[in-house]
Design a protein around this nucleic acid. Structure first.
Length: 268
DNA sequence: ATGGTAGGACGCCTA
């Protein structure tokens, strides 16, 4: 049976509901993981999702900043809302969902952006980002015959040279510094995770999921970065049948600066 | 080299 999961940093769930509806109507993922909902839990637009057939909604939100939500057409079981770095930030949600004969553990992450200055000694936000990644190391790609793991979200790091518009020009820009790219690749491989976007799009090809709001013409300039990721345990990777980076969504009305990424699997 | 835009706490922080 086919199973699809989408991840999207939507930069305010309430403001973005029209294009979230567009995504759900046109692509109908089984599971949708949102980041940067910027919505207190008691103000989350549950009814709008229910109307679209997404009756199962788990949220970990706060006022003004951050916030993640995992939304599905099938039952979700809340597993954990982990607090990282004792900051009180809402940046993680883990849930279980049934997919074919497998029980999937889905981690939804919003990693700190890290500020502008890539020096942890003078920039506490960058130090926080590195500390967060350090704590993420014990999130493993657990799996056996009956279970698998998926980790998605805005990880705010573009690890490969082809994940940014200019490797050379971004080496000192937070999101592509060597300490970040090395740390992310180490924690991914160390946790047993496969980078599924790069399973479908060869590492020599450029691919981006984010374009700054500040560019005059994001499409023509195309100064993007691959900040959003879909990882899985190794027993799921051979079942991957498709990967869509929905670039067109950056041009939708009132867009997020990130676009949805959708993975499709053929499960037993 | 700098500043550019967007969102939410409507003043300034975060991205």
């Amino acid at each position: 049976m086919p199973f699809t999961i989408a991840t999207w940093n939507i930069n305010s769930v309430r403001l973005r509901m029209p294009i979230v509806e567009k995504l759900l109507t046109e692509h109908a993922p089984d599971v949708l993981c949102l980041q940067e909902t910027k919505c207190p839990n008691d103000q989350f637009p549950f009814a709008a999702f229910r109307k679209l057939g997404y009756e199962h909604v788990l949220i970990n939100g706060q006022k003004g900043y951050h916030g993640v939500a995992t939304i599905a057409r099938r039952p979700l079981i809340e597993v954990e809302k982990r607090e990282f770095c004792q900051m009180g930030d809402t940046r993680h949600l883990a849930a279980r969902v049934g997919a074919g004969s497998l029980d999937l553990l889905v981690h939804n992450f919003y990693v700190p952006a890290g500020g502008d200055e890539p020096d942890p000694d003078i920039n506490p936000k960058f130090a926080h980002k590195l500390a967060f990644l350090d704590e993420m190391r014990d999130v493993k790609a657990s799996h056996d015959n009956a279970t698998a793991s998926i980790l998605v979200g805005d990880l705010n790091i573009a690890p490969l040279e082809t994940d940014v518009w200019s490797h050379k020009q971004l080496l000192k820009v937070v999101s592509h510094t060597p300490i970040e790219t090395r740390t992310l690749e180490n924690l991914r491989a160390g946790g047993g995770w496969d980078d599924l976007i790069r399973h479908r799009i060869p590492p020599e090809d450029k691919v981006y999921t984010w374009w700054s709001y500040r560019a005059r013409d994001w499409d023509t300039a195309d100064r993007g970065r691959r900040l959003d990721h879909i990882w899985s345990s190794p027993n799921l990777s051979p079942k991957l049948t498709g990967m869509t980076v929905l670039r067109e969504a950056r041009g939708w009305l009132k867009p997020s600066d990130h676009v949805p990424v959708i993975a499709a699997f053929d499960l037993d």
